[in-house]
Amino acid sequence: MSAAILRCRVVQPGALSTVQDLGRFGYQRFGIGPAGVMDRTAYREANWLLGNPTGAAVLEMTLSGAKLEFLSAGRCAITGADMAASLNGAPAPRSRAFDVAAGDVLQFGLVRNGLRAYLAFGGGIDVPEVMGSRSTNLRCRLGGFMGRALTAGDELVALPDAGGEPRELPPHIYQPEIELRYVPGPQQDMFDAAAYQVFDNTAYVVSPQSDRMGCRLDGGNLPTGAGTDIVSDGIAFGSVQVANSGQPIVLLADRQTTGGYAKIGTVLSLDLPLLAQALPGTKVRFRPVRAEDI
């Protein structure tokens, strides 16, 4: 049997649906941010369920999902947030590979749990690799599907899918209160003990002004003393930048490559998916860990 190639048409795009892979690396030194999926755990799971190659591109949907009509048969997997997906009106499986046929309609709704859902196709989404990645960089209008979020009428095509045995995982259940472990620094010396005291003991709330670039946290600004301006340096995924106002912002996939504000700490990579799935209003606490103990 020849490998199947899945095709579908976007009937409704959802609030923000972009093609992403792990990110575009090797160009940050030219000022091009990596973009990539926000929730690497859900991303890996979606590709694992289908036996896709590591690095296959998926669709990331934020807050509300897409409505897709399939033009040919293939395999799909849904991970991450629960957007009440339905296949031809019946509930579609989460965290389990399933088949679709030409004419099937897969519809995602408003998010019920979590924030970002991932839809993978057997073989992975076929968009051109730009600078080594299929990720959409919205800021640079680069990569992914024509450098932009999906709109109605777009047609997505998958790479050839050799098929695979059915795989299943337990779906995630995202909590309204999360704890993020972080390593203090790299500008630890710009924050005194009082600032860390506040940071470690505040129940922050995810602000509605959060996006793929960063997660803003409300609930108490940090004492910043002489300010937080630094000579600009590189920013890692999950670094917590503190502006002069004292508000912490966790910098995420669409972060700028460099920035001029001090970072009080950096969230552990294993905990970042929790933040990627945190709806505005989610309570966030930070717990320091020593780099030596990781």
Partner: peptide, 29 residues
Amino acid sequence: MTGGAMNSDLAAQLLPVGDSALLVGFGRL
């Protein structure tokens, strides 16, 4: 403080940035 590795390049500090990055700092000038 951070266990920054010192070496012959006395001005350089290697600081952990979470669990997946290191910042090699050469001062702030």
